[in-house]
Amino acid sequence: MAKCHISNTIRVLRFNHHEMTQQQLADLVGVTRQTIVAIENGKYSPSLELAFKISRVFNLGVEDIFSYTEEQEK
């Protein structure tokens, strides 16, 4: 059975973007800090709308931030 996994580089991007805090990013994209924490830790895959909002904050494309991998479970 295939297991889907979306990883991201938000933590690194925040650091490279004037050491932006999770709260600042959350305020910019209109979610709570806990949601940013969950996304960074891979506990939540954001909606397409939120993914676009995050990508616009960093002036990057969605695929530059989020990557999709499909793992095969044995």
Binding site: G30, V31, T32, R33, Q34, T35, A38, Y44, P46, S47, L50
Partner: peptide, 9 residues
């Protein structure tokens, strides 16, 4: 306390 519920909530 967060003042709103977002998509995760």
């Amino acid at each position: 306390a967060p003042s709103f519920s977002d998509e995760f909530d």
